[in-house]
Write a protein that binds this DNA or RNA. Structure first.
Lengths: 99, 99
DNA sequence: AGGGCACTTGCGTCTTTGCGCAAATAGTGA
DNA sequence: TCACTATTTGCGCAAAGACGCAAGTGCCCT
């Protein structure tokens, strides 16, 4: 039980670190900003942020692997949305600390 | 003025990303946890976390470069503390999202 | 000055990350 | 099936990060 608590503590820390890592890139933070207003397609995001589509797809894969975003397919278009709106609060505080 | 706002927006995003990067390592999150209770010396942290002193010093340098911690010298001992307790809230939410 | 403790810095190495480009997959409609 | 669009995946390379070990700096004490 003690071990149990310690293990999940370590696990939570590792996963928290992984989420922080996913948020540690300006482009990905930009994606989070965009998704605050609602879901967006890969090509929309790629255009807004000004990078190539494959690059955007990779960034979105990183965010999804961290559980930050989720995707929905509509025809040939894939829409991404925030899976955890709480990351907006994280982002807000990060900016506050940064300022 | 519009450019001004845009530039500082980009700057804030970049700095927020830098802070997230500093938090993207399990050992550094562990340091943040320890510092929640008050200041600690480098050797204390190194012992608690179980890494070599130079390694801990480097991690602390990363956290300080991001403005997350600050240091105070007392004799030959250097004590680190949280410069922005708000990161504790960030860490709390990250764990919440992770869980 | 000299020895010893606390910490920082430099260096070599191995792993990870971001990006561009090409190729593959998925879905739509003629 | 074929062409077309949207997205993902694979690959190679350059840049950044983490760690161990050795060397350097700063401080205290005798």
């Amino acid at each position: 039980m003690l071990m149990q608590a310690t293990l999940s503590n370590d696990l939570l820390r590792d996963r928290a670190a992984a989420i922080a890592r996913a948020l540690s890139d300006a482009k990905r933070l930009c994606v989070v900003e965009r998704l605050a207003d609602g879901e967006r397609s890969v090509s929309d995001l790629s255009r807004d942020i000004g990078c190539q589509v494959p690059n955007m797809s990779q960034h979105l894969a990183v965010l999804r692997a961290a559980g930050i975003v989720a995707s929905r397919r509509d025809g040939s278009t894939v829409f991404y949305r925030l899976a955890h709106p709480q990351v907006l609060e994280v982002y807000r505080i990060l900016r506050q600390v940064a300022g």
